[in-house]
């Protein structure tokens, strides 16, 4: 338990989770708010939003791997073209940026869809009332939409939190947890220990801790968000 390697992996994992939650949740809410509420646009948006969710993890990894290749990938070539020294296989910062971007691309839709469902369930009378009272759109968001979305938002957050701890395939496919150990998250480390080195004892211990970390985080988050609903 004093293993520095484990601590590093855990730290990376927590940082990654924090980052993607900070990006995906506000972005998802924002997109859900701007989505149309009626007409053909609804169907188009929903299909577009659902597309990334339908793609298997390893395909996402492979796609982004090619997409981001510095010499031939569209993204890599472009970024280098505008003057960045982009190379996800050598530079840990860019490796991180790519993994985060990949996850945001893949999973923000989930947040969007959940929030959109939450928004749709708000009766029109709420919007009319606020219109009659002369509320600003910020007030409408803060006092009507956000509180009404709270439950689905909690679910979205918990799902993304747990899923982000499961992240394995994408960074593995992208560059195997590298460069060095820079994108070796808990799950990748666990597999390396258990199957690469065949140290089953420490790996079992790790996975137990891994489980408790996820459980603890979920519990804390859930309690915080549901606090004023119960008292």
């Amino acid at each position: 338990m004093r293993s520095e390697r484990f601590h590093d992996a855990l730290g990376r994992q927590l940082l990654f989770t924090l980052l993607i939650l900070l990006i995906e949740v506000p972005l998802g809410v924002g997109i859900a708010l701007t989505m149309p509420r009626q007409g053909i646009g609804v169907t188009i948006c929903l299909v577009l939003m659902a597309l990334p969710l339908l793609i298997p993890w390893n395909v996402v990894g492979a796609m982004w791997n090619i997409f981001a290749l510095p010499d031939i990938g569209l993204l890599g070539k472009m970024l280098n073209g505008v003057g960045f020294d982009y190379n996800f296989t050598q530079n840990p910062f860019w490796a991180w940026a790519t993994v985060v971007a990949m996850d945001v691309w893949h999973w923000t839709s989930l947040v969007v869809l959940l929030c959109y469902a939450g928004l749709r369930s708000i009766p029109d009378a709420y919007y009319q009332t606020s219109k009659i009272d002369g509320a600003t759109s910020w007030q409408v968001f803060r006092y009507i939409q956000l509180p009404k979305m709270k439950r689905v938002l909690t679910i979205a957050l918990l799902l993304r939190l747990m899923d982000s701890f499961m992240i394995y395939t994408e960074p593995f496919v992208l560059n195997g947890g590298g460069p060095g150990n820079s994108t070796t998250f808990l799950s990748i480390d666990l597999v390396k220990v258990a199957l690469g080195q065949f140290d089953l004892g420490p790996a079992a211990a790790m996975s137990i801790i891994y489980f408790f970390v996820v459980l603890l985080l979920c519990w804390v988050l859930y309690t915080l968000m549901m606090r004023d609903e119960t008292n």
């Binding site: 009659i132 009272d133 007030q139 006092y143 509180p147 009404k148």
Partner: peptide, 27 residues
């Protein structure tokens, strides 16, 4: 003008006092 609907429309995370006061706060 003011309007009251068949559904009970109140701000979910405001107290009763704040709910009643909301149009006055906007004014």
């Amino acid at each position: 003008l003011a309007m009251v609907y068949q559904q009970f429309i109140n701000f979910p995370n405001m107290s009763v006092f704040e709910n009643i006061a909301s149009p006055l706060r906007i004014q």
